[in-house]
Design a protein around this nucleic acid. Structure first.
Lengths: 145, 145
DNA sequence: CCTAAAAGGATACATAATGTCTTTTTAGGG
DNA sequence: CCCTAAAAAGACATTATGTATCCTTTTAGG
């Protein structure tokens, strides 16, 4: 359960690679794909999605390629993951409570809500800069224990 | 991402129903399925799995049926979820770090580990008794904020 | 032995994941 | 103005997973 897909894994690899480059450097898709070991055609699809929502910027034609859409310290891992996997929804009822109007067993609802919040919390706390720097910030929840 | 399957949803419904019955009461599969609105044949498969690992006990033949395998306060939601969905693994690399020996992008590894711990933490904090009682205990993480 | 009930196995269908291929558009450079 | 490089877009193929259903077998009570 809760498993990131290949697509998600590839997306993170690719965009973290971009985050490690200068903001104005245009990178060839084929170079990125080779560097992070992802099928180029697949990565193309992912970056097309990212381009539409501004996570990356793309340039066509000769000398074209991709660069990060914004400064890496302003892009959270949550944003990347949700862009490629859709929203973090442990159970349908979290977003559609009307499906949950059964009596007893929908006591579970608040639990899924908690799970969702925890996960989003962790992923929000990490930026692409953190990841490309190799400096992962400890989460508050770690300090707690 | 992270979505519980129907099977998982059905499993929880079914076993929470059992948790609400007296420990020695044998319930007909068909009754359970009808009560929690789950396809009986599907629930049968789920409870067969549960029976093998002792989460529920089954009785065959006339007067047969299912009951909870242990006291509901000793069964956590995590146990139920993992029994039916498999282990909580946000990314393969969490359980197989050898796949993660790439340089930069596996900085993400500790993040997935954190996610895993957070989710398991929440699900461990809830028992079937809590769920069948309708009394969901607030998590430590809630108090923190 | 007859019937009720779960166990086990095989099967069917739909959807999502994981790619690939081809064609089209865009842009730079001679 | 063409030629070439590169991404965009769309169609397609393959597999795996999810979501069941059905049928036969085993077990147990009466």
């Amino acid at each position: 359960m809760m498993e990131l897909t290949r697509k998600g894994e590839y997306a993170i690899r690719g965009i973290v690679y971009l985050a490690g480059k200068p903001l104005d450097k245009v990178c060839l898709l084929s170079d990125i794909a080779a560097a992070v070991d992802v099928p180029p055609t697949f990565l193309a699809k992912i970056f097309q999605q990212f381009s539409k929502i501004g996570l990356v910027r793309s340039f066509r034609g000769t000398g074209g390629g991709f660069m990060l859409g914004r400064a890496p310290e302003n892009i959270t891992l949550l944003e990347v993951v949700e862009a490629v996997e859709g929203p973090i929804i442990p159970n349908r009822c979290v977003c559609a409570p009307q499906d949950c109007d059964r009596s007893s067993f929908c006591n579970v609802h608040p639990i899924w809500k908690q799970v969702q919040e925890q996960v989003c919390g962790v992923l929000t706390g990490v930026t692409l800069k953190d990841l490309s720097d190799g400096k992962i910030k400890p989460q508050p929840t770690d300090l707690a224990k």
